[in-house]
């Protein structure tokens, strides 16, 4: 009895199946696209107030000016100077901020002010800005805080 062995072996190509990895990458990309929030340049990183059960709402204000108030040295909240800036601009003296607000109010009478202030600041540091806003006859004042975690 003769057995015939087939010695002809098909040329096998060894390779990694990339399909599951591509699927995972797609899923990750979609996940990050959904959860990403793009911050604007005027949202300078700072430690914002986190009130309990926050009533803050994510609202779009068409005519607004953001005034940032932050600590020059966040590691020393009590001894640090306070930096004031309008939107994405560099920190300026409060008198310059006041001039800017005055010009902006002239250009758009319905202007609203938004104060983004570090939660560790003293009220007196923020009230200086509030006075400047009031002097420029800007009636609506909005304060930035973190929204509640449920949203």
């Amino acid at each position: 009895m003769r057995y015939v062995y087939n010695h002809h072996r098909e040329s096998e190509s060894f390779g990694i199946n990339l399909t599951p990895m591509v699927d995972v990458i797609f899923l990750l990309t979609i996940f990050f696209m959904l959860v990403s929030r793009f911050s604007s340049a005027e949202q300078i990183p700072m430690d914002l107030p986190k009130p309990e059960d926050s009533q803050a709402e994510v609202a779009k204000i068409p005519e607004r000016v953001v005034v940032n108030c932050r600590l020059a040295d966040p590691s020393d909240p009590r001894g640090s100077a306070v930096l004031y800036s309008v939107g994405p601009n560099r920190p300026e003296r409060l008198e310059v901020v006041a001039d800017r607000l005055g010009l902006m109010k002239q250009q758009s009478p319905g202007l609203q002010a938004v104060i983004r202030a570090d939660r560790r600041l003293q009220y007196t540091d923020v009230r200086r800005v509030m006075r400047v806003i009031a002097q420029n006859k800007i009636e609506m004042l909005n304060v930035v805080a973190h929204v509640s975690e449920e949203e």
């Binding site: 509030m130 805080a145 975690e149």
Partner: peptide, 11 residues
């Protein structure tokens, strides 16, 4: 956490 706005009037 996202930022939100507390609206008020200025004296």
């Amino acid at each position: 956490r996202a930022e939100g706005i507390l609206a008020g009037k200025m004296p």
